[in-house]
Design a protein around this nucleic acid. Structure first.
Lengths: 144, 144
DNA sequence: TATTGTTATACTCTATAACTATA
DNA sequence: TATAGTTATAGAGTATAACAATA
């Protein structure tokens, strides 16, 4: 029996619980591959192509540019990404995924998707589709 | 045209963006009534009845018992909740919502629900229902 | 002067472990 | 001794502002 709508938990409470659960499941998967959560976010953001500036990359994953630097240092140190000065404007650093980075990303993503599959296993297919569709509509990626 | 499923953002990224957006919209509404986010979570958790112990209340809202205390101090100082020793075991403090607390909660909740309504305005009714149903199924409230 | 990346500083949040009072 | 609540301490995360290089 469904809850009357005015008695349900707030969206904030529902989302908070779900985010915590996803993080609990996801963190150990990434740690097993030596990757922290934000490092993974960086790798994933670079999959579709290089970032023209670090500031743009930071915005794409919803972080501050200053806090991105530790992730980039780690990833560059492991040869997973490369930072090259933009010849056209040498203030900018173009960040690209290396082949090793792409391979690691593929492994991480496979693990994460399997985790998500398990999480949503009990949800009927059409509810799942509506769920993802709604998430994408209500929280679209930043323009660009 | 829908994204192919393997190209969509991870659930973590989608949820992170949405939580941030909800928080951005919700925080000023609560601040206008002099309430912080976690204070509101406490009030909401007490709506259905008193908490028999502070530890149980903390668990209900997904927080540590030590971090609950500042909220309770604030709320008790404003006469919105009451902490009374349990006569049966005086180590426990029973936390109850006062009439003032209940009134403030009603106002906050109305504001929050209106915000949610606006956020989901573009989402078709059946998708919205599936969305909330799925959230509740995948991140159910803690037992008790 | 303005901007990119970087570093440094302070501030908040969180986790852990003591401490007290009851049992 | 064990537990509920409280307090204190240290650590991580975050925001802000300064700094160096380049435009």
């Amino acid at each position: 029996m469904p809850q009357p709508d005015d008695r349900r938990d707030d969206l904030g409470a529902l989302l908070h619980r779900l985010v915590r659960r996803v993080l609990e499941l996801e963190t150990p998967l990434l740690a097993a591959r030596g990757v922290e959560m934000w490092d993974y976010a960086v790798l994933a953001a670079l999959e579709s192509g290089p970032a023209q500036t670090q500031a743009r990359l930071a915005a794409a994953i919803g972080r501050d540019k200053t806090r991105l630097i530790a992730s980039l240092d780690r990833l560059e140190g492991r040869g997973l990404v490369a930072r090259e000065p933009d010849p056209a404007d040498r203030r900018n650093r173009i960040v690209t995924l290396t082949p090793d980075g792409r391979a690691l990303l593929a492994g991480c993503r496979a693990d994460v998707r399997a985790m998500e599959e398990g999480l949503l296993a009990d949800v009927p297919a059409d509810d799942r589709a509506a769920f993802l569709r709604t998430l994408l509509r209500v929280a679209p990626p930043p323009a660009g």
